[in-house]
C-alpha cells in the first residue's frame, strides 16, 4: 500500500473565525463539479437564458402595442420594451439566484445527499456554501451577459452606463442567493417551498417590472418601495436608460445590506443546514 495522497488543505487566516474544519479553501471545486454537470444537461442550462428573452419578445412588442411610451426614470418618455427589459433582467437575476439557493440546494441536500458525500472529504460546510453561491453567480452572470447582448441587439441600450448592469445583476443575485440559502436552512419539506413561490411571484409581478409605480394608490406605493426586487428593477432601469443619479447608490446599499445580513444568517445556520 502506498501512503495517502490526499493533501491537507490550509484555509486562509480570515476563515479561522468560523467553526474549525468548515473551510478548506476549495470552493472552486464545486464550480468545477457544477460546470461538468451542466455540460451533460446543456439544453436545460441554455433554456435559462431564453426565459427572459421570450418575455421581452412577447411583452415588449405585444403589450407595448397597447401602451406606447412610458415615462422613464428621469421622466423622459421611453418605449415599452426599453421600460420592461431592465425589469426582466433584474427579475431573472432574482429568480435564478433564488432557485439555485433554495430548490437546488434542498434537492442536493435531502435527496441526492450530495453534500454528505462532499463533507466526507476534506471539504467543509463553508466550501459547499461558497461553491453553490459562486455557481449561482457564474450562471446568473452568463445569463445577464446574454440578455444584455439581446437588449443591445434590439437597440435598447443607448448608454455606456449599461455596462454596469452586469455587476449590478451579480450583486442582486448575490443578495438573493444569500437570503435564499439562509431561508433553505429553515426548510423542512417541499411544502415549505410554496412560501418561496409566494414571495418571488408577487415580487416579479408587482415590483414595477411591467408598469410604473404611479399605477398604485399611495399606500401601496410605499409597500412596493420596500420590496428588494423594486430596488433591483430601479437600479437596472437607471443604468440601462442612462438616467444615472446618486439615488442608484441607495439601491446598491440596499443589496449590500441584504447580502451581508443573509450571509451572516446563512453562515450561522450552515452547520444546522449541512451537519446534523
Amino acid at each position: 500500500m502506498t501512503g495517502p495522497v490526499g493533501t491537507v488543505p490550509h484555509p486562509p487566516r480570515a476563515w479561522r473565525l468560523l467553526p474549525s474544519g468548515g473551510y478548506a479553501g476549495r470552493a472552486h471545486l464545486l464550480l468545477e463539479r457544477s460546470a461538468t454537470a451542466s455540460r451533460r444537461s446543456w439544453l436545460v442550462f441554455l433554456s435559462g437564458f431564453f426565459e427572459p428573452v421570450f418575455y421581452l419578445l412577447a411583452m415588449g412588442q405585444g403589450l407595448g402595442s397597447l401602451v406606447g411610451e412610458l415615462p422613464g426614470p428621469d421622466g423622459a418618455p421611453i418605449g415599452y420594451a426599453a421600460f420592461i427589459a431592465p425589469g426582466l433582467l433584474a427579475a431573472s437575476a432574482m429568480n435564478g439566484a433564488v432557485f439555485d439557493s433554495t430548490f437546488n440546494v434542498f434537492f442536493k441536500l435531502k435527496y441526492a445527499k450530495l453534500y454528505d458525500a462532499m463533507l466526507a472529504t476534506p471539504l467543509g460546510a463553508v466550501d459547499v456554501a461558497l461553491g453553490e453561491i459562486g455557481w449561482a453567480l457564474v450562471r446568473g452572470g452568463l445569463y445577464a451577459v446574454g440578455f444584455l447582448l439581446v437588449m443591445a441587439g434590439f437597440g435598447l441600450l443607448g448608454t455606456p452606463w449599461a455596462l454596469l448592469a452586469l455587476p449590478a445583476a451579480l450583486l442582486v443575485a448575490l443578495a438573493f442567493a444569500a437570503v435564499g440559502m439562509a431561508a433553505t436552512s429553515f426548510m423542512r419539506s417541499w411544502q415549505d417551498f410554496d412560501l418561496v413561490t409566494l414571495v418571488t411571484v408577487p415580487m416579479f409581478l408587482f415590483s414595477t417590472t411591467f408598469y410604473p409605480l404611479s399605477v398604485y394608490p399611495g399606500w401601496l406605493q410605499v409597500v412596493v418601495e420596500c420590496l428588494p426586487l423594486y430596488h433591483a428593477v430601479e437600479l437596472m432601469r437607471g443604468l440601462t436608460t442612462g438616467a444615472v443619479s446618486l439615488a442608484l447608490l441607495g439601491h446598491v446599499a440596499y443589496f449590500l445590506v441584504m447580502a451581508v445580513l443573509g450571509g451572516a444568517v446563512a453562515a450561522r445556520r450552515l452547520e444546522a443546514l449541512l451537519l446534523r
Binding site: L66, V67, G68, L205, Y211, V215, Y216
Partner: peptide, 20 residues
C-alpha cells in the same frame, strides 16, 4: 396574482386608451 398584476394593475395603466 396574474389577474391582479395584469387585469387590475396593467389595466389601470391603459384604461381609456384608444389602443386598448
Amino acid at each position: 396574482l396574474f389577474v391582479l398584476a395584469f387585469g387590475v394593475g396593467f389595466g389601470a395603466l391603459v384604461r381609456g386608451s384608444g389602443q386598448v
